[in-house]
């Protein structure tokens, strides 16, 4: 028990002095099996949306299908870029490429079969969506998707582009 409190106290001290959380560096895979680092999640000074999903997760697919419908408009208006991170494991990972192409999604999809990125981002449940600002800070996140949730997301991106602080 003592050791637990010791660790918690130590972490509390760090928490006070710590800064904003930035995007961690972790190796991912492209659906074609090539290894790619999260350092290549880039958008030239514009905001980034990162969305964790899986082929077997109905709300995730609904969320990304909705994003796909409005993505072109979003990009034109705000310059935002979306990266969909599949947490499909060895069972469904080989299906990701054909699943994504079959649905004709217009954004980049990376895979995290060993859940390294998921753990580093403290994701419990999917879908889980993050907004990353131009300095790679994680400024906002949200679990779950409900119909119409995309409206809040794009509004936040607009506010971020206007220089507002959207962290809560």
């Amino acid at each position: 028990m003592k050791s637990i409190f010791g660790i918690l106290a130590f972490l509390a001290v760090i928490a006070v002095t710590a800064q904003n959380n930035t995007l961690p560096t972790v190796d991912l895979k492209k659906p074609d099996g090539t290894i790619v680092s999260t350092d290549s999640i880039l958008n030239a000074g514009k905001p980034i949306i990162i969305s964790f999903w899986a082929t077997w997760c109905k709300p995730c697919v609904k969320e990304l299908t909705t994003f796909a419908e409005v993505y072109e408009e979003w990009q034109e208006e705000t310059g935002v870029k979306l990266y969909a991170i599949s947490i499909d494991d060895a069972r469904t990972f080989p299906n990701v490429a054909s699943f994504v192409n079959g649905r004709d999604w217009p954004f980049d999809v990376f895979c995290d079969p060993n859940a390294d990125f998921k753990r580093a981002m403290n994701v419990n449940l999917v879908p889980h969506t993050f907004i990353i600002d131009k300095d790679r800070n994680i400024v906002w996140q949200h679990t779950s998707f409900t119909e119409g949730g995309e409206l809040e997301l794009i509004e936040l991106i607009r506010r971020l582009n206007n220089g507002e602080n959207i962290s809560e």
Partner: peptide, 22 residues
Amino acid sequence: CVGGVCRQVPALYGLLVSITSN
């Protein structure tokens, strides 16, 4: 899968409360 999230649950009868935070 309800309300936009999926998870595996065992057989149950009663009241279940789940809280997650990040």
